[in-house]
Design a protein around this nucleic acid. Structure first.
Lengths: 206, 206
DNA sequence: CGAGAAGTTGAAGCGTGTCAAATGCAGTGG
DNA sequence: CCACTGCATTTGACACGCTTCAACTTCTCG
């Protein structure tokens, strides 16, 4: 999906990773968010006229298409689910603010540590971690585009994190031996993910 | 209003400027958005449990408090206004994405030029510009906190923009003699502000 | 087994940050 | 009306984090 498109449906990611990104004419590219399994791609589709960013995949992805009609039905008949959609869009905005903070104020190693924490927390919330480990399909280039660093520097920073035993990262798997330490290395505070919401897991029949 | 608060009302800014910001323990501070007259402060208040950021004023500000009850009535009786609130929160998210891009990919002068363009466009949309001029109460420190630059460097960058005749900025007034040129200096594309919305100005009785 | 993608390494340069001091400017009280 | 005060802006010199470029190595997968 590309900037300027006028898509018809909203996409729900069933499996795989994707990302939102924006590009300047000269090719500079910024990943502005990651979509993990269970995330919804673009709730804004029905209100904003056209996409102000592009969406791309990190891995292969399976999606469900949600139509406008589906949303109208939800809005009419299932207020708690409608609220959950509101919630998801507000949390996305909060994450985006935190990324702004990340790029504006944190050093390279803090930035990367922070991003890894965020991803780990989100995956854990979705039940997709296995103890201290999780899948991690991002390349160093992807990390570079997301953190606003060059890929060479991402490489060096990752080595730093590895040699401090903050992470074990190889072969598309991330292990976080001591989440507390990684969090403090990234000045990470999970507030902004708003995981405390009552009724976070909503059933349609609640 | 501070991070961690649980505010009761939503605030509408009638006059004056304010900002959202986040802070790290060691004092580093990032402004993540500006509120201009007509902007709504925190639509998320009713859904998210607590603030993940703080709100501060730039100038003195007059606000209107909007209660939860007010929003419930809007939601029930005025669907076009309800949609307008949706729209405003989605545009805010789009702006936040653009800021991510700004901090991640643009150079110092591009960043500042871009931010000035954004503010100028938003003020113009609100009818608050006078030809090529507008009020501009931000200090160089504010600009530094918003762009992730040091204030010394902001100062030097502003001088650069001034000496290229891209801006005239003094005494809390900004003049943009050639908006097109400033836009291209900031690689600014107004897409993300979604100003094209049909029915952008909504009347309650429509 | 080969080819392209991803990761790693080194050296050099530059954009920004930091520190510290000077200047300008607006509001306040005598 | 002027001296005083405190904040905002400006300037210079120097340091450093990160980028760039270019080559090399290691993985991955057909």
């Amino acid at each position: 999906m590309r900037e300027g498109d006028k898509p018809k449906d909203v996409h729900l990611i069933l499996s795989g990773w994707a990302c939102r990104y924006k590009q300047l004419e000269d090719g500079r590219r910024q990943v502005v968010s990651f979509f993990l399994p269970g995330d919804i791609c673009d709730l804004n589709v029905f209100i904003l006229k056209e996409m102000d960013h592009s969406i791309g995949t990190i891995t292969s992805v399976t999606i469900a298409d949600l139509t406008r009609q589906f949303f109208d039905e939800i809005g009419a008949g299932y207020p708690r689910i409608a609220t959950a959609f509101w919630w998801e869009s507000l949390v996305n905005a909060a994450i985006q603010r935190e990324w702004t903070m990340n790029l504006g104020q944190r050093t390279a190693s803090e930035r990367i540590a922070h991003l890894l924490c965020e991803i780990f927390f989100r995956l854990r919330l979705a039940g997709l971690t296995h103890g201290e480990a999780c899948d991690f399909p991002l390349t160093q280039s992807d990390l570079a585009d997301a953190t606003g660093l060059s890929k060479v520097h991402v490489n060096r920073t990752l080595q730093e994190l590895r040699s401090s035993n903050l992470i074990v990262l190889k072969g598309k798997t991330l292990v976080v031996p001591d989440l507390e330490r990684l969090m403090s290395a990234g000045l990470f505070n999970a507030n902004y993910l708003h995981m405390d919401r009552e009724g976070r897991q909503l059933d349609a029949n609640e």
